[in-house]
Design a binder for these strands. Structure first.
Lengths: 257, 257
DNA sequence: CAAATAGTGTCTTTAAGACAGTATAAC
DNA sequence: GTTATACTGTCTTAAAGACACTATTTG
């Protein structure tokens, strides 16, 4: 059939052959970040098959024909962590021709933020081994560390995953300064202290902000009415459960404006 | 062959069948922005085939097996404009299942910035008609306009391209505030006036900044030594070619620090 | 009481909006 | 001279770093 003679869209669609060209495979990778022990951490999975068998990698999977890349990422997220409805955003699409030795794979990477208490149960349930690694990213060099002081260097990671993790950390560190993403790491959005929020902020940026200034900024952005932020922080009536000496902290909760 | 028995990576690769699953197609779209007549503008192509025949669309093409998505975008860029080596960055990957009525297509969108004098020659050369449209994006609604006052509304664009253009404009407007991208639109980086830079800045943000404040900011960021910017702006010896009354402007050029 | 953590107030620097005023050309 | 554009200086406000100080609990 001659393409020039096709007159209607219906006719066109009937005659279009989507299988005539070779195609790359498409996967979604999901970087699940959390704050553990006042440190930024990421969940990785130990590869059980070649290539890179035994190495640590970002969870991911092939995009099915009936799902968006984000749906693929959420599916993988559910498989690895049993958490749903958490904050997620697209990071970047990686397409180097030889990034996977098996075949041409284009990968759409997503980042997700989960409170640690939602994450810690599932670890080890699955056949595939997962582990949460503390991230250490300074001066352009990344290393990861588990609870037993084992250190994973960039070259120990599978594929181009060191590059992806580094880009993700840069994105998160940047975005925490001008968005509300730090609250996504709170274990309980209906009952938290300002110190908990500051610990998250410090963990992400890997700095030690001045406590007084941090509280002033929180007051300005989230506790007054003349502000642009979408959310508001208000005190709760709950009592703080003292675990140590020192002035007991006030408890707050997040509400939409 | 049983997957369990595969022992080496070489063996694995020999036996991996990348054609066993149905795959989505992958394209790269390239949004070519310029500043024309002191207004932000984008290059679009008139579709010559179904679907959306006769509608305006973002140029794009299928990703070949031996090229990255960025290389695809640069290839399309060269086909439409004959410009090379211009600034380009990845915008976002669009993967809605039914975004293309023909078949499943995942599209990686890129944005590129070109000075208008590099762009204006090629238009009309090709078999496919291209046109540069002024963009008008306010209050969440996009409309496009050509030199003859013809107006293109969101629904007149092909596929989900209105959504993509809107996201691109937001990215550019945001980035112009904290990066040096505005200089990528200069017709001549070795001879320009501060007013030309300001016109570009105003065109992108669709505002009218105070001239004095803009010049002070340029001085601070690009003409002093205690600054973080990668580039520096220094005066040139060239003479200004007067075309009107008024004090003649100084000419500057951009140098790396 | 000391120790520990929570929280406030003040001083300073810097970026940036508003806007008045000056400089140098064409005509 | 007027007009048009280029350019400088000053006042003000807001955000944020540094840091001293106060408050309230445990032990």
């Amino acid at each position: 059939m001659n393409m020039e003679n096709i007159k209607t869209e219906e006719e066109f669609l009937e005659n279009y052959d989507s299988k005539q060209y070779e195609k790359p495979s498409v996967t979604s990778d999901i970087l699940i970040f959390t704050v553990k022990e006042k440190r930024l951490a990421v969940l990785l999975i130990k590869r059980g098959a070649f290539p890179f068998k035994g190495r640590w990698a970002i969870p991911g999977g092939f995009v099915q024909m009936n799902e968006t890349t984000e749906e693929t990422a959420r599916r993988e997220l559910a498989e690895e962590t049993s958490v749903k409805n958490i904050y997620m955003e697209q990071l970047y699409t990686f397409s180097d021709v030889n990034r996977d030795p098996r075949m041409r794979i284009i990968s759409v990477a997503y980042i997700a933020f989960a409170p640690f208490n939602k994450l810690k149960h599932k670890a080890g349930d699955d056949a595939a081994e997962t582990k949460i690694f503390y991230v250490n990213y300074k001066n352009g060099y990344l290393s990861l560390q588990d609870d037993n002081e084992n250190i994973i260097k960039e070259d120990d990671l599978a594929f181009d995953h060191a590059k992806i993790i580094k880009m993700a950390i840069e994105r998160i560190r940047n975005k925490v300064s001008y968005t509300d993403i730090m609250f996504e790491f709170l274990n309980n959005k209906d009952s938290f202290t300002i110190t908990e929020v500051r610990d998250i902020y410090n963990a992400i940026k890997d700095i030690d902000t001045d406590d007084g200034n941090f509280r002033r900024d929180i007051r300005r952005k989230y506790m007054t009415d003349d502000t642009e932020s979408e959310i508001k922080i208000i005190p709760t009536d709950n009592k703080y459960n003292y675990e140590h000496a020192g002035k007991p902290a006030s408890l707050y909760k997040i509400v939409k404006r």
